[in-house]
Amino acid sequence: MAVPGSGLAFELKIPFPSSTLAKIALGSLAPDPEPRKGGITKELNVTEDTLHVRWRAEEARILRVSISSFLEHLSLVVETMDLFGPPMA
């Protein structure tokens, strides 16, 4: 869903060791909606072993806050996988 009049976009592609781990990251990071009501959208999906994230925002400030919070959460997911993985069959 595009934000009307939005000029800013940002895209991240995060490779994981397997598609299972990429899907787990998606499952951990996707449920919480963006805290603010408007002005930004974030889409997540997985193709094979890569997690894709696409942002669209009206203001650079809002975009920066969302990306930096996402990266912190992502590093927490990866650290959790390292310490409490690998996935059980």
Binding site: K23, I24, A25, G27, S28, L29, P31, D32, H73, L76, V77, T80, M81, F84, G85, P86, P87, M88
Partner: peptide
């Protein structure tokens, strides 16, 4: 919640 979701899936 992120840690809980991750270990639940792992």
């Amino acid at each position: 919640a992120i840690v809980a979701r991750t270990v639940a899936q792992l």
